[in-house]
């Protein structure tokens, strides 16, 4: 299934009953150099729109919100030693966490890649 995007610039991609979550390439470009990522504990339950992680650039810390609710079943440990992966490959190797979705219908109001592209263009 294709990625879906939030207005807060997170992406989520469902693969079977698990969804992978990260921040968009546009988000990383706006943040600049990422120097630290705080990831949740595996097993934590997050609800849609709740803070799921924190991403820190040289300048500031920003919250990352869960695009949908569920249980955290995995986090990208590799970001601990290489936070710049978020800049290099935000929508691939720079993923943040994996969620076991509580309710897949929560993805329905998220944007498709084309809709998100238009949304980002409207911010310029």
């Amino acid at each position: 299934m294709a990625k879906r995007y939030t207005k807060d610039h997170e992406w989520i991609e469902v693969d079977g009953d698990v969804a992978v979550v990260g921040i968009s390439d546009y988000a990383q470009s706006q943040l600049g150099d990422v120097v630290y990522v705080e990831l949740p504990e595996v097993g934590k339950t997050v609800s849609k729109g709740a803070e799921a992680a924190v991403v820190e650039s040289v300048k500031a810390a920003s919250e990352v919100y869960a695009p949908a609710g569920g249980e955290v079943v995995g986090v990208n440990e590799a970001l601990g030693g290489a936070p710049a992966t978020v800049n290099e490959d935000a929508e691939g190797k720079g993923w943040f966490l994996k969620l076991k979705l509580a309710n897949a219908a929560e993805l329905d109001d998220l944007m498709s890649p084309d809709q998100y592209k238009e949304f980002v263009a409207s911010l310029a």
Partner: peptide, 8 residues
């Protein structure tokens, strides 16, 4: 992601 848009 939270963001602030600032007027210039």
């Amino acid at each position: 992601m939270s963001e602030t848009k600032t007027l210039s």
